[in-house]
Every structure is written in C-alpha cells, then in structure tokens.
Design a binder for these strands. Structure first.
Lengths: 244, 244
DNA sequence: TCAAAAGTGTTGACTTTACACCCATGA
DNA sequence: TCATGGGTGTAAAGTCAACACTTTTGA
C-alpha cells in the first residue's frame, strides 16, 4: 500500500521513539475527609527504605490498558472500598529525581469522601487518617502535592458546592460552617455565613432536627440533588461570561 | 547490609514493576498570541497519516533526563526561538486510545507570547497561527486540550495580570481592552473597564502617546515590573484568606 | 438555672453596572 | 469638517462586613 509522501504511520513513529517508552506514570490520590472538626487526609506508611518511617499518599503505577482517570478511581476503590466519589485531577509532577526508583511522573488527584462511609481496613495496613494541619514532612514530594491539592480544594470550595462530599447526607448549618472553617482555616461570621448559603440556594430544608446534641438542636438540610456531582470537571461549553 | 523488615529498596521496587515503564509521556503546548484583534494559537500540520490534513498542537515526548516543565520550555524554545516566556501547566490527558502510536499520556501547557517577538520560521515547516475562534477539528484529542487551555486562560485573565504577556511592552488602554474582549468573547464598557484597570494598579503611565494611528492617539502604558511574572504558579504559602 | 448553640436584621462601606457627552487628531 | 476613538462622572443596585440579642434545648 503506497504511503503519502512525507507522512508516516503511527506504527512507524512508535518504532522510531521506542527509547522514550521508559518513563513510568503513577497517580497519587489526596483523599480528604472531615472528622472531629478537622480536615483529614488518608496516608500510608512508606514501604521504601529510603523513606523509612515517613508517610506517603496513596498511589500506584498506571497500567498500560487503563485510562489515567480510571487509575485514580481504582486506587480509591482499592484503598477505601468506595465507588462513585468525588475525584478530580489537580496537577502532574515530573521532576527527574522525585522518585528514587527511577523516572516516575505522577498525576495528583484529590478526592472528597464521607469519613463515615468508607470501608477501610485501617488496622492492619498502616493506613491512617492524619490531620492536615499537623503534617510536616512526607515521603517523595508528597508534601508539595498535598499542599497543591489543599489549595485546589480551597479554591473549589469557595466557588462550587464540593464540600458536601465530606459530609453525611443530612447536616446542620453549624456543621457546614465548621467544615468551611476547617478547610479555609478561618473563622466565619454565623449570620453572614447563613445568608451566603441561603443565597446560593444549594440546600433543601428537611424539616428535621438534630438529635443527641447537648444543646438546642438545629435544623437538618441536605444538598439539592442537582448539585451532587461526583466530579467538578468543566465541560468545554461552560465558558465564563463576564461583563465589565 | 541488613534490610529493615518489610521494607524494600527503590531499586528492588523498580525491578518488580519494570513492565510498567512502558507508557510514553509527552507534553503539548498551546501557544497563544494576539494579532489582528484576534486570539491565535500556533499549530502544525500533523505528520501522521492517520490525521492527514489536520492540525495539531506543538508537542514532543518527554526525555528520560528532562523535567516535565523543562520539556515544555524546550518545545517552546525549539518552535518559537523564545526564552523566558509565560508557560503554565494545565491538565494531563491520559485516555488509553488518545494516540495511535501506542500509550502516550500528555501533559498540556499553555503559553502566552508576544506575536511580534517570536522568531518562527513559519514558511517552511507548516507552522501557522490560527484564529482560535475558527478551529473546529484537530488531530488526536487536541481540540479538547485547546478548549481546556482556553478556559484556563479565561479564568486566569480575570484574576491575574497574565494577558500582558500577549502584548508588546507599550500598549494603550484600547489595545488592552480589545485583548480582553478577544480572550473572553465579550464586549466591555470602556469607562468601566478603565476604572477597573485603574483600581488594580498594574500599570505605569509612560507619558507617551500612540503614533501612526488614524485618530486621536491614546496614552501608552506598561505593566509594572513586579507583575511581569513568567509563570503564575502558586506557592503553597499563598493561601486564600476569605471572610464570610 | 445554666451552658451551649440556634436563629435572626440593619447599617455603612464598597463594588458593580448602566449610561452620554465633549475633545483631539489625522485624513 | 468628518470619522474615529480618547477621555471622563454619576446615580442606582447590589454585595459585603461588622455587629447583639432573644430563644430553645439538655444537663
């Protein structure tokens, strides 16, 4: 079969570049949860001698026959037993020497889960929730990755209804406010907070009350279903329209 | 040398995972410029038979001894002859079948350059500026990548002084406004636009006037040097502080 | 009856939008 | 003298920040 002049087939191109198929690609998941009024992240003790005693994010190499996004879902599923959770790509880290095993480029994702719903076997596998505030040092460049994902979470929190993925289905406005305060590391004014949430029109009043609280119970709300997106990925048609 | 129980060295880990070092990693650059009152992007005719006649972004495989960010700078330098330009990572695309040569995951960057300063040899290498508005179909998943980068540019434009990378050093407020209008695809009110720019306090009044315009010349400005960052990458210390 | 949090409005400061006229220059 | 864009202000609407008291419940 004659080839067009100047063009090469993909197969030919692959052969001429085989040397390059020599970088491993991993994904690392920053899995956030909210518990005890603190933002937590799920970490595992590093099993590399080089990072003995340090913690790392949950990650794995991407398989040849696996989409990048699928790899991050797989890790989440394997580690937490959860399906259908919020997961979003954040950034890819590709310094030459970031991994002692060789050239490994990693794509970081962040995930938001309801800590009550996971299915972790936390006891036997060195997997633990860590308060984000207390984390100083991590294996690899994982502290940088964590910081980057935390910043992304903060940005997203302020513009989109994503934090509800960290709460149980029913929650009070106090719980919601405390969650925002934990994520943003700020104190918020109760009246202004409630006004702002009311304007967003994200919530349904369940006409139910908190129970088992040692004080006056608050009303319970849930997120309107149309905002329960699992990811926040933007469609290319969602352009920002601005006027000045 | 004795090993700690349960730990493995990075070297051992690499051996056990050698199969995975089999995905190629590329970077693709969405190089924007502004010319003739339109936002343009630099594209090249695809040299793959599969995409005969279609255009693609400028990309290349990442070398084994090259940082991911360095790879994107290299492509930009090789293609435009420019150093020290604005370049920022946007997203990584990793569908299994996005590339006919095999498994190639690509990290997309966007770049903003002054069209007058480049050093392209546009004539002999099928490299051309295309009006972003007119682009319908591209090779690979490059249309999706372009759309994603355009959205990122729009978001960044509204919050940070990045668009100045698309202008010559000296510019008039009219040029600046037309640039924003081209990027955002909106019409802006002149008085409100000037007020808004004045409040940002990004510009230095050069006390010079436009020349060779067929109407009353406007004042020329330049960006204050402290805003002339080449990239907009966030330091992890730059937390958003919010009050509600 | 005490402790804890629920629930609720107003004011002033600021920001955003909409909108129109005269001026300076070059052709 | 005409065409083109330069340059400028104000009023109304909306948003944001600061701030305090009464109510309800459980202990």
């Amino acid at each position: 079969m004659a080839k067009s002049i100047g063009l090469k087939t993909a197969e030919l191109e692959k052969i001429s570049h085989l040397d390059y198929f020599n970088i491993a690609l991993s994904v690392d998941c920053v899995i956030f949860a909210y518990d005890e009024k603190e933002l937590k992240v799920l970490l595992i003790k590093s099993d590399l001698e080089e990072f003995s005693g340090m913690y790392s994010l949950l990650g794995d190499l991407v398989r040849l026959d696996e989409d990048l996004d699928a790899a991050s879902y797989r890790i989440l599923r394997e580690r937490t037993g959860m399906e259908d959770v919020f997961l979003e790509q954040v950034h890819t880290f590709g310094s030459i020497n970031r991994h002692p095993s060789g050239r490994v480029v990693t794509t970081a994702y962040y995930s938001l889960i309801d800590v009550k719903h996971h299915n972790l076997r936390l006891n036997n596998n060195e997997l633990h929730w860590h308060s984000v505030k207390g984390i100083k040092k991590m294996a690899f460049d994982h502290k940088t990755i964590l910081d980057t994902c935390l910043n992304r979470l903060r940005e997203q929190s302020m513009e989109h209804p994503v934090v509800f993925n960290l709460l149980p289905e029913k929650f009070s406005l106090r719980e919601l406010q405390e969650l925002y305060e934990a994520i943003l590391s700020v104190e918020l004014d109760r009246r202004n907070f409630r006004k702002k949430i009311a304007i967003k029109d994200w919530l349904i009043d369940l006409n139910q009350m908190e129970e088992d609280v040692p004080h006056r119970p608050g009303k319970l709300y849930k997120l309107k279903p149309e905002f329960r997106k699992k990811t926040n990925r933007k469609k290319s048609s969602e352009n920002n329209i601005v006027s000045v």
